[in-house]
Design a binder for these strands. Structure first.
Lengths: 165, 165
DNA sequence: ATTTGCTGTGTTATATTGTAACACAGCTAA
DNA sequence: TTAGCTGTGTTACAATATAACACAGCAAAT
C-alpha cells in the first residue's frame, strides 16, 4: 500500500536506511527519466535535486538557494532555483508541499503525478503514500460530484512514530 | 456523503441556489458558534466572513483587504485582515486552501476541522466534502504507517461539471 | 565547420503573501 | 471607576515567487 516496504518507510525518520543509496538511486532515476523524455538534466537541476534528496523533510526554495550558493561559492538568485524546481516538478521528480511552501523528492517519478503525503508536524518528516489507497473513494467522489479530478493533493498532518515516543 | 444534498452542491457553480440565504445562514452559524465559545464576532471579523461567503470560490487575503478598504471607505492594513482570518480559522469558520493561498467558508463549522475540497481549475469553484468518505482508508493508513494523523488537508483539483460543458 | 535557432542561465527589479512589534482603544468584570 | 484583557491601527519588514530582458551554449541542419 505504501510506496516501499513498511520497514524502509519507517526507517526514513531514523538512521536505519542507507541514505547515500537513497540519494544516488533518486539521481539515477532522474537521469533515466530525462533521457526517456529527451530533457536535459543540467548541472543546476541535478544539484537542486540532490539537495532536495538530502533529507526526507521538505525544503524551502530559499534554503535550497542558500545551500546552493554555498556549495557553488557564488550568489545564486531566486529565478535560478525556481526554474530548476519548475523543471523538476514538471517531470514529476519532486513534489511541492503546499502547506509548508516546500519541496520534496518523489519516490516514483513518471507516474500520474498525484501528491499524497503523511507529514510529521514535529520533525517535518514527509512520507509519500500511493494514491492507489484512496482510488475507490476518489472515484466515488467523482461520480457523485460530477467533477473530473486530474490531480490529487493530499497532505495528512500529524505525528510520526519516532516523535510519538 | 457530500456536505449537503447533491442538488444543492451542484448548484453552487451555477445560479441555482439562493446565495443570499447561503450567506446569511453562514453568518447565523458563526454568531451561534461565537456565543457558544464565548468569542466576540466583531465588526471586522463579521465583515471578513461575509466577504469570504460572497462566493464559493476561495478569496485571497489581499483581495479581502481591498474589498474591505472599499466598503469601509478607508485603508485597511494586512494585519487587520490576517487577524480576522486567524480568528475565523481557529474557530473553524473558514478553511485555507493551500494550493491557492486563499480562504473559503466552512460548511459545517465546529466539527473536527479537516479540510477536504474539490477545486475546479477553471472557475475556482471549491466544493467541500465530508472527511467521513475517506475515514476507513485514512484509518488503515494510520495503522500501517504508525503516524497519528490530526489534520486532513485534501485538495482534489480538476474540472467542475459546469466547466466541463 | 558554420550557422541558426532553441533552450537554459544571469541579473535586476518587483510582485505577492504573511508577520513582528508596539502603542492605543474599548469592552468587561470587579 | 478602575484594572486588565482583548482587539485594533500602524509601521516596518520577512518570506516566497515572478517578470522581463540580455546573453550563453548546446544541437541540428546545412
Amino acid at each position: 500500500m505504501l510506496s516501499n516496504t513498511n520497514n524502509e518507510l519507517l526507517a526514513k525518520g531514523s538512521e536505519r536506511h542507507d541514505h547515500e543509496r537513497c540519494i544516488s538511486d533518486a539521481l539515477i532515476r532522474a537521469q533515466k527519466l530525462c533521457q526517456d523524455q529527451k530533457q536535459r538534466l543540467t548541472r543546476t537541476r541535478e544539484q537542486v535535486l540532490r539537495l532536495i534528496w538530502q533529507s526526507h523533510q521538505p525544503v524551502g526554495a530559499y534554503s535550497i538557494m542558500d545551500t546552493l550558493a554555498e556549495s557553488e561559492g557564488k550568489r545564486v538568485a531566486p529565478p535560478t532555483v525556481y526554474r530548476a524546481l519548475d523543471f523538476l516538478l514538471d517531470l514529476g521528480l519532486i513534489h511541492r508541499i503546499n502547506s509548508l511552501n516546500a519541496y520534496i523528492g518523489c519516490q516514483s517519478p513518471g507516474h500520474q503525478h498525484h501528491s499524497c503525503f503523511l507529514i510529521c508536524q514535529q520533525c517535518q518528516l514527509a512520507l509519500e503514500f500511493e494514491p492507489e489507497l484512496l482510488k475507490n473513494q476518489i472515484e466515488a467522489l467523482q461520480q457523485h460530484s460530477g467533477f473530473a479530478i486530474s490531480q490529487q493533493n493530499i497532505e495528512l498532518l500529524g505525528t510520526c512514530p519516532q516523535c510519538q515516543q
